[in-house]
Simulated assay, not measured.
Amino acid sequence: MPEADDEFAALWDAHYDDVLGYAARRVDHETARDLAAETFLIAWRRRADIPMDRPFPWLLHVTMNVLANAARGHRRRNRLWWRMREDRGLNEPVADVATRVVEDGRIGTALRRLSPRDREVLQLIGWEELDVNDAAVVMGCSAKTFSVRLHRARRRLSDVLAELDAEGQSRPIPTLQRSSQS
């Protein structure tokens, strides 16, 4: 079926980088590449279901499901790994400095305090730059429902940021200082 192959190749060319970016903003780059590939494998298998007038939200919805499946698998493996470590009496690993610097960011801290659904709603609008209609497709709900979720998520984010400010936890990300000897 050369026609379907050409159409799918055009879909890949048009949206692979965006799907990869969506995944890479949620997991490490290597895992993101695997997830993007799995998304397009599913798209190939279900190519008759792809709404060709607006395929990107459909692809992101698939990617969101692939991410959820990967996260469940990761949690299962992680629980097993910790059980094995506990059985052997091993200590917890120490997080590297770069990870701590990123995690100490004010917005990152606030986002981590939100529910996964609130985070996803905000990230679809802020990181993926989707409009409400396309983000609703990704989340599998109506545009009106998504708008309500977005409004509530923004309000909760604002509340958490205010809490962080009140707690004095809004620290700037440290920068390297040049030595006066240079």
Rank of each mutant, 00 (worst) to 15 (best):
E128H: 12
G73L: 06
T99A: 12
M64H: 07
A68E: 11
E86N: 10
N65W: 08
A95F: 00
D87Y: 02
M1R: 08
I107L: 04
G105T: 01
E7G: 03
E92G: 07
E3A: 13
H29I: 14
E167N: 08
P93E: 06
A136N: 12
E92K: 07
G105N: 02
E38M: 09
T145H: 15
R25G: 10
R117C: 04
D165A: 09
R72H: 00
R155M: 00
H29E: 11
F56Q: 12
A98K: 14
R26K: 09
A24L: 11
E3I: 14
R171W: 05
W58K: 01
A14G: 13
P51T: 02
M84G: 02
P116F: 06
V132K: 12
V137T: 13
T63A: 00
N65C: 11
D5F: 01
M64S: 09
L80T: 07
L90Y: 00
I173F: 01
A71E: 15
R26P: 00
S115E: 04
E120D: 14
A9C: 12
A23C: 13
F56P: 14
R117D: 09
L60T: 09
S142P: 15
A24Q: 15
V97L: 03
E167T: 09
A162D: 11
F8Y: 06
D6W: 00
T99F: 11
I107N: 01
T99N: 14
W81D: 04
M64G: 06
S182H: 09
D13C: 01
A23F: 04
E163P: 09
L157G: 00
I125M: 10
D131Y: 15
E7I: 05
D53N: 15
L164W: 03
A136Q: 10
R112K: 09
L59R: 06
A153H: 05
I50S: 13
R79E: 14
S115W: 08
R152E: 13
T99C: 08
H74Y: 03
W81G: 06
I107R: 04
R113A: 02
L20C: 04
D28Y: 07
V62M: 13
L35W: 01
L90I: 02
F40E: 03
I50R: 13
Q169F: 00
T109A: 06
S142W: 02
P172S: 03
K144I: 10
M64T: 11
S170M: 05
V27Y: 01
P174S: 00
A10V: 06
P116Q: 15
S142C: 15
L157H: 01
S170N: 12
A43E: 03
H61V: 04
V27G: 05
W127G: 10
P93A: 00
V62A: 08
R156T: 00
R76H: 12
V97C: 05
S158V: 01
R178K: 11
V137Q: 12
D28F: 09
H74W: 03
G168T: 04
D165F: 02
Q177Y: 09
R83S: 05
R79C: 02
V94N: 13
M1E: 04
E30P: 15
E30M: 14
R154D: 06
